[in-house]
Design a protein around this nucleic acid. Sequence first.
DNA 1: TCTATGTGCAACTTACTAGTTGCACATGAG
DNA 2: CTCATGTGCAACTAGTAAGTTGCACATAGA
Lengths: 112, 112
Amino acid sequence: MTSGRQPLDELFGVLADPTRRGLLERLVHHGPHTATELVADATVTRQGIVKHLQALAEAGLVTSERVGREVRYRATTERLSDAIAWLLGNSAKWDRRLDRLRDRAMKAAAKR
Amino acid sequence: MTSGRQPLDELFGVLADPTRRGLLERLVHHGPHTATELVADATVTRQGIVKHLQALAEAGLVTSERVGREVRYRATTERLSDAIAWLLGNSAKWDRRLDRLRDRAMKAAAKR
DNA sequence: TCTATGTGCAACTTACTAGTTGCACATGAG
DNA sequence: CTCATGTGCAACTAGTAAGTTGCACATAGA
């Protein structure tokens, strides 16, 4: 059962870092930014941020677009549905509220 | 902003490992088990499993109870709501389906 | 009491990850 | 062209995490 690097490994792993979650939050709620712009809010160097953004990109949570000499990173949160679906699917099944949530999440995930 | 070891770090970090997710799934869907029993389905040693269960316990996802010479581990999935809430809160806000999910999840989390 | 089974503790190896620094390359503006 | 700004690549360090092995301790049962 322990095959190499499943999608959820990457997804949850990427979200386990507070700096990365902060970056993603920023991109989700305040739109696209460059790595250099994001340095202001972080405690790490630009290179550190670039690494985090690349990790997020590999997990499918951000995309990048070159604009002149800048590179804009944009959040693409569709993949989060996979994580949500797993979590709801493993929340106590005897809870009716979560049962309803799970059903809806499964449908939402299936549509994608 | 990068303070030491936030709750979500631990939560997502613990879920990033496929062996741990497998253990949690097993406990959620098939009830309490001992570490020794869980060895059968895993690819790692008992000690490895014990370590994973301890990690899950520290993240508040399982509890353990001693019964004679055995130790039964039981899933306690309430904490998953925290992860669900974060994910829904950072899913694209323009998506109405996820908006509804988020509202419901927030209410569910608040009740706990 | 003796034994089989289950658990706990500790040391150790290996591998990965966060974060850094240094420098080279690319591009927009004057 | 020249320079400031933004990006890319690579090497390196330090810390942590997975997983193992070996052995000691505890307990149910014959």
